[in-house]
């Protein structure tokens, strides 16, 4: 039995999830069906889009913001973030530009979420 808070709307229902039978996960405490779907995804494979920054070399500002192009498993977040630690992207950087390709072999890239021009 797991306890979750549904994040799909401001009600924030407290959900109880019985996942002892992976093929028949039972959700209670939800006020609407969205809560049940959320809970099932959350106990089978919780995923998150990860956002952070990477250093820019010779840019107008020091850092460029990045995100994973799709959500990745929650337990891979910190390993993914480590890939950003020791890189330095040469300016200019274009929004959408791939910063780290195929993060941890997950088929997802880190892409820039803003443009950074060269230092004037």
């Amino acid at each position: 039995m797991k306890e979750l808070i549904c994040i799909c709307c401001p009600m924030g229902c407290h959900l109880q999830v019985d996942d002892s039978d992976k093929k028949n996960i039972i959700v209670t405490g939800n006020t609407c069906p969205r809560g049940a779907k959320y809970a099932k995804d959350e106990v089978t494979c919780p995923k998150r889009v990860v956002t952070s920054v990477a250093a820019v070399d010779g840019g107008e500002i020091n850092m460029v913001s990045v995100k994973t192009s799709d959500s990745i498993p929650k337990d891979k977040m910190f390993d993914a973030l480590k890939l950003l630690d020791n890189i330095s992207v040469p300016a200019p950087v274009e929004i959408g530009q791939v910063i780290v390709k195929d993060v941890l072999g997950l088929g997802v890239d880190f892409v820039a979420t803003k443009s950074v021009s060269k230092q004037r």
């Binding site: 956002t51 913001s65 995100k67 929004i95 979420t113 803003k114």
Partner: peptide, 25 residues
């Protein structure tokens, strides 16, 4: 928005989850 690099912006306007800088752009 330039410093709000997390996602969750624009669900109403663009029906997708953008980061702050992307929404501003």
């Amino acid at each position: 928005l330039n410093q709000c690099i997390h996602n969750g912006f624009g669900l109403h306007t663009f029906k997708e989850e953008l980061t702050g800088p992307e929404y501003a752009q």
